[in-house]
Design a protein around this nucleic acid. Sequence first.
RNA 1: GCGGGCGUAGCUCAAUUGGAUAGAGCAUCUGACUACGGAUCAGAAGGUUGGAGGUUCGAGUCCUCCCGCCCGCGCCA
Length: 640
Amino acid sequence: MSQPPLTPPTATTGSSLPSGSGHDPLSLLKARFAEGIAKAFPGQAGADPSIAASRNAQFGDYQCNAAMALGKAVGQPPRQVAAALVAAVDVGDLAEPLTEKSIAGPGFINITLKADALARLLTAVDTAHAGAEPLPEGQRQTVVVDLCGVNLAKQMHVGHLRSTVIGDTLARVLERLGHRVKRQNHVGDWGLPIAMVTARLMRLAAAGQVDLGRLTLDDLNTAYRAAQKECSGEFEALEIARKWKMGPKIEAEIDATLDGPKAATEAARATLVRLQNHDPAVMAVWQRLVDVTMAACLEICRRLNADVRPEHSAGESTYSGDLAEVTALFEKSGIAQVDDGALVVRLNDVGIAEPLLIRKRDGAALYATTDLAAVRHRVQRLGAQRAVYAVDARQSLHFRQVFAAAHKAGLSRTATGEQAVLEHAAFGTILGEDGTPFKTRSGESYKLSDLLDEATARAGAAVAAKSPDLAASERDAVARAVALAAIRYTDLCTERTKDYVFSLDRMLAFEGNTGPYLLYAVVRVASIFRKATERFGAGAVAAAETAPFVLGQPAEKTLALQLLRYGTVVHEVARASEPSRLCAYLYETAGAFSSFFDQCPVLAAPDEATRAARLRLCRLTQRVLSDGLTLLGIPVVERM
RNA sequence: GCGGGCGUAGCUCAAUUGGAUAGAGCAUCUGACUACGGAUCAGAAGGUUGGAGGUUCGAGUCCUCCCGCCCGCGCCA
């Protein structure tokens, strides 16, 4: 039994290096140590060289931790193995020569880079995207990214924030690396709930109580809730009464309360049938729902700086014509069985105890069916080699089931027989102070438009207070950028799968590990260049672009080592679908720059060569930070 | 009940997936020369990593058992 992996294989260690990171000393040292291991212990060739950046400066810049594991494998004391490695490894002109003194503790080998090697590597990485360049053609993939996932007749609220922001960021990172990215907004635009609103709106319109031509999203939202309410009743109570034989009188009493809900539900079901048959009268109203909802949704996405456009919409309705075919495919192949009238896919053989229901007893399809049709569309029609779903972690079981069922039925195999990787990029819930999913005090969901308004207002106030001389015209754009930095960074900076507690105050705190702090670092670099151009002229600043790096000061070296990692980090984010790693990296980079800024004068450098070298270091820092922020969907500003 | 996740400084989070003395931010305290933006920097203080065992050179990380919280589990989406 060969079950295709649901997630991409983890990067292999050893001599096969992650692509696009060739200038990271980590990669180079791995290669050198891999050679050394093969030379000193031929039987262990291919063992993980286990190179890591040292956490503590007293242990050098990098360290090799391989001796301990090797020692066990070859039956020698680790320090003896380390000594053999030190003798066998040729670090060449990359690092200071390894000696007995390089060995510490149980067998750690400490490595210190040569200053000129660091400068050389940094020069090599000083490219347009600072090492995060697009992959060669042969390594590019077609990747579908599922994001946003709004529902008709509902405002976008904080529940949609994560899918939109995380999905957009993953898409941006994949695009940067040259992958063909296809965004898909799986809009909840089909099924009974939508039929319920549609039925209600048609009734109100017929009675002259609403003007379908002037509907707003608020109207739809109101109608949605009203429709939910008029269709809901104590249906379960009736079943319980019958089951426990509580008597005809009680049953009749409960039944009487259900007359309204029953009628409303019947009307909704009838409307659903007409909708599924594309009845023009129903479709016209439904289309209004789509137009009004999507206009608002796309506007919010625009404000969130998320690239979600009309052509990315592929709602549930898109698949309505495919459902019968999909269920037939499962049924005929025997992958699904009829059980108690319903069609189910059993998944015990792949370690999932819960079966997946794809057709109800009444013949109707379920959302799992739609998701299966969507998998087929994405893989077989859009050509996805990888499909990433930025969806709430509470859907984990659902996606495990859908992916497993899709694999069984071959829906995840392309026309050429290539197996696509299906991946749930699950994220945690945004909680309120009480630890339950976040709602406002009045119990409503917090609308993203309100969040954006509030954040922008607060950012504007902060900008006005801290930079009173900023032109009013520029202030608005800056306020929007700061607000966006605050909102998006908050959502992206923690590990994806973790829940977090929503707090406007924390989100809009502009100190410490926040988006605005990163913006501030970029602004300070920009400021240096403005002043440099004033004092030394554009020619001198341009000349510094190719000046030799000089990395004598500790702060310069720390910053340089940090900048070298950028490309590797971006590749890692793409592989693991984990934007928080980019956030952490950028925060460390901004910190390294701030220390450098404090300790190493640029404009007032001791000599011209140092000034030019530092200007170039600033330029590369600027490129890394603004490139990284762009990948996070945070607009970069010159002043704030 | 079964399955999954989580538990780290007062608070919010890290820890390069088994590496050396568990690190940041907020809050608290102390410093920063008229050098480039103080939304900053340097430093101090703050810990029995929920608890108990185990695996090994080495455990926040892996294994077992407890405690506590969250999520999910056939006819909703």
